[in-house]
């Protein structure tokens, strides 16, 4: 299924939301924030898509106000892969968890909480994964400043 068919399929299931292809990445569909757990559940369980293999989920930080959250899933049955992007507000990014759908998402979300500060309500044990527990700040954010972080001269 090509991304366009994905968008049509999702549009059919959720008529009052519109889904379009992300201009930056032709294999990615932009989905609204409030649909996150149901739409993933639909993609996983619906026998037209059967996305049973969760690749990864990560954030792309656009400093002034936008924080994109990109999920990537693959179906071992139909052999097609899709990325889904959710746009979050940068001040207090908050997205419901999908770790109950794929166990693999658990650590990915913990890493995003640790490195980007994205909060996942519903996640069972949300604590820092990479950094020591008493670390403050979120290193992978663009505006992260730390005494021993040396920015290479251009």
């Amino acid at each position: 299924m090509t991304p366009q068919e994905f968008a049509k399929h999702l549009g059919a299931n959720y008529p009052d939301h519109q889904f379009e292809i992300d201009p930056l990445n032709e294999n990615c569909v932009l989905i609204p924030l409030q649909l996150v757990p149901q739409c993933f559940e639909l993609l996983r369980d619906d026998d037209a898509t059967q996305m049973d293999y969760f690749d990864f989920s990560t954030c792309v930080d656009h400093p002034p106000d936008r924080l994109d959250l990109v999920y990537s899933m693959y179906s071992t049955v139909y052999k097609h892969r899709i990325q889904l992007k959710v746009v979050l507000d940068r001040q207090n990014p908050c997205v419901p968890t999908v770790s109950h759908l794929w166990v693999n998402a658990n650590w990915n979300e913990r890493e995003m909480y640790d490195l980007f500060g994205v909060f996942f309500p519903g996640h069972k044990d949300l604590r820092r994964l990479m950094m020591p527990d008493d670390w403050e700040g979120h290193p992978l954010r663009k505006d992260y400043a730390h005494p021993n972080l040396v920015v290479r001269p251009d």
Binding site: D22, L24, N25, N27, C28, D55, V60, V70, S72, R81, Q83
Partner: peptide
């Protein structure tokens, strides 16, 4: 050029 992609 600007854009995003995933390759594996």
């Amino acid at each position: 050029p600007e854009g995003e992609t995933y390759v594996h």
